[in-house]
Design a binder for these strands. Structure first.
Lengths: 166, 166
DNA sequence: CTTGACTGGCTAACAGTGTTAGCCCTACTG
DNA sequence: CAGTAGGGCTAACACTGTTAGCCAGTCAAG
């Protein structure tokens, strides 16, 4: 990826982080770089390709955060939630809708999943269930679907306890 | 709500059900009713208001489906998943992003939640954890985030078993 | 040294989006 | 009979992603 392309991805990430996915428009993106929108197409075929790069970055970061977490399911849950809350728009972007797998860094999906898979001793069903729980908790929290003031810490504990017992 | 307004909501629902949320445009909606887009604004203040009505209908239907399910957490999970898979675009619409609570039929949110709350004996933390699990499983399945051919039945069982043990 | 290709910018434009302003006909009501 | 409200319409605006086509600079080959 060229120098300029990397700058574009960085700018796109910034736009998304402080304005949500809707704030990423080709004109706004170009503006941030001091150029015009059509020039972006010299570096990326379309907007989806730019978004895919941002998703790739976000997934890599999430993977790193999970790898850095202590062992054990609860620690993993905390790290997962922490990343999502620190980068809500980024998390939503990378976790919602179909994933452009062919445009992502190869293996990043598996890499992000590995810490959890190991934490449940390679039990596929358990790892998928735990992932669904964590994603559900996070996305419902980000979207404000829980009642205001709900004790989400307790809900996390309840889930972690449920999945930790063998 | 007037006769015409009800027709608009029905048409909007149909557009979403067979084309996704993106297929609901004011022009397409008007077209389906044989009128022009600006005329819709005689009945609804904006597109969000129409969507909110569709969400209200969907949430009511989901609540009914859950109330009709047999008692017990697993039956509830099956009913939840079945509704989501039968109406994927509708489910995504009602479960993603901020909820326009002030435009929804009053109490519909609580009504949809009640069967689950009762199934876990009014344990708030448990009900939220179970909800997060179910939503996570469904939305990840709808979005194709699980590996192709993954055994989701096992993952559901693993989750249901985890949450059923007291 | 010139010529050609490539890179990366630009303007103008198009189709599609939600939405507003303003007009007009019809029906019902005082 | 007058007037008002309901509900349609066209024209238009600002915004979106995207394409076509032009042009300046750089750099290597003949």
């Amino acid at each position: 990826m060229s120098e300029r392309a990397a700058q574009i991805v960085t700018a796109a990430r910034e736009l998304i982080e402080d304005g949500g996915a809707d704030a990423l428009t080709m004109r706004a993106l170009a503006n941030r770089l001091g150029i015009r929108a059509p020039s972006l197409y010299k570096h990326f075929p379309d907007k989806a390709a730019v978004e895919a790069q941002v998703i790739g970055v976000a997934m890599t970061e999430l993977a790193e955060a999970l790898e850095a977490a202590g062992p054990g399911l609860p620690a993993l849950g905390v790290a997962y939630r922490r990343y999502a809350l620190a980068h809500p728009h980024l998390y939503r972007l990378m976790s919602s809708g179909p994933l452009p797998r062919d445009l992502l860094p190869p293996g990043v999906e598996e890499r992000a999943a590995m810490p959890l898979v190991r934490a449940v001793a390679f039990d596929e069903a358990a790892s998928r269930a735990a992932w669904a729980f964590a994603h559900g908790m996070v996305i419902l929290e980000l979207d404000g679907r829980f009642p205001p003031g709900a004790d989400l810490g307790s809900a996390w504990e309840a889930g972690m306890a449920a999945f930790s017992v063998p």
